[in-house]
């Protein structure tokens, strides 16, 4: 029986890689249909309606302007990436800490959790001018990025920590594990997949936070670039900056997903098997 099982278990590992690559390329192609259609429609609309370029440049004009302004874009993009990465790191560290506190302590649950939620009802964008008033620009912008991305981390963390499979807890406690051991070795690892879902969302929000901060308070960063270029009717450059922001958000999201795959190999194989 054991050898028969061994054979079945190992079968997935030997699936033909060529076919898998082919399927992946197919999936990417399907995913690209929509944006390509949108770009084509945009280009056609510009040909047909021929608006003035500073109102709506064509995709081709945007690409050209982006290429011509690549040094400027690169200079500003570095700054935005730096702020987004610092902001995300802080959001994850503070958010996970808060989640642990809120899930673990009833007092923290009652005293903190409602306010974490209420804090999200405030339109954080409206706080930007105040933060700029109180803090040096860099600090204000990072703070805004953290505020705009911490919420999904906290909520996902709390849900993950409170939603542990009771049988896992029972298994540990039934072997004599203490409450503290069970938190560290059962509840926390069991919460990681959900926490990562929150972090992926945070990775997207943090870029928005950084941009809002830069729009208000900075001469550097892609947020500042869009403000300045739009003010000078370099609309094509503005578009290029926005496109770059989308790419940065996507890259950050992908980086988190990659970190998740490396940190949680056990979930990766579980999903592959069940899909």
């Amino acid at each position: 029986m054991t050898t028969a099982e061994a054979r079945t278990r190992e079968a997935p590992a030997t699936a033909q890689p060529a076919r898998r690559t082919g399927m992946r390329a197919g999936r990417v192609a399907v995913a690209l249909v929509l944006p390509l259609l949108a770009i084509v429609a945009w280009q056609v609309a510009v040909w047909v309606a021929s608006p003035r370029e500073w109102i709506l440049p064509s995709p081709a004009a945007v690409a050209q302007a982006g290429w011509d302004a690549r040094d400027r874009l690169w200079f500003h993009a570095q700054w935005t990436v730096l702020i987004a990465v610092i902001g995300l790191a802080l959001a994850v560290a503070i958010g996970a800490g808060l989640a642990y506190l809120i899930a673990r302590s009833r007092v923290a649950w009652l005293a903190l959790y409602p306010w974490v939620i209420v804090s999200q009802v405030i339109p954080l964008v409206a706080l930007a001018p105040l933060l700029v008033l109180w803090f040096p620009p860099f600090v204000a912008i990072v703070l805004l990025a953290v505020l705009m991305s911490i919420f999904p981390v906290v909520v996902a963390g709390v849900d993950g920590l409170r939603g542990t499979d009771p049988d896992l807890v029972r298994a540990a406690r039934g072997l004599g594990a203490s409450e503290g051991w069970t938190w560290a070795h059962v509840r926390v690892p069991a919460a990681l997949p959900r926490l990562f879902t929150g972090i992926r969302m945070a990775a997207v929000f943090v870029v928005s936070g950084a941009v809002v901060g830069e729009l208000v308070a900075s001469d550097r960063g892609l947020g500042a670039l869009t403000r300045l270029s739009a003010g000078q009717f370099e609309t094509a450059v503005t578009f290029a900056g926005v496109a770059l922001l989308a790419l940065i958000g996507l890259a950050l999201f992908g980086a988190v997903a990659l970190a998740e795959r490396m940190a949680l190999p056990w979930t990766r194989r579980a999903t592959r098997r069940s899909s």
Binding site: D167, R170, A171, A172, G174, L175, V186, P189, A270
Partner: peptide
Amino acid sequence: DVALMPQRDALLPW
């Protein structure tokens, strides 16, 4: 001196 083994298999997945 007791060990309890839960109903469903309770190996830690990670």
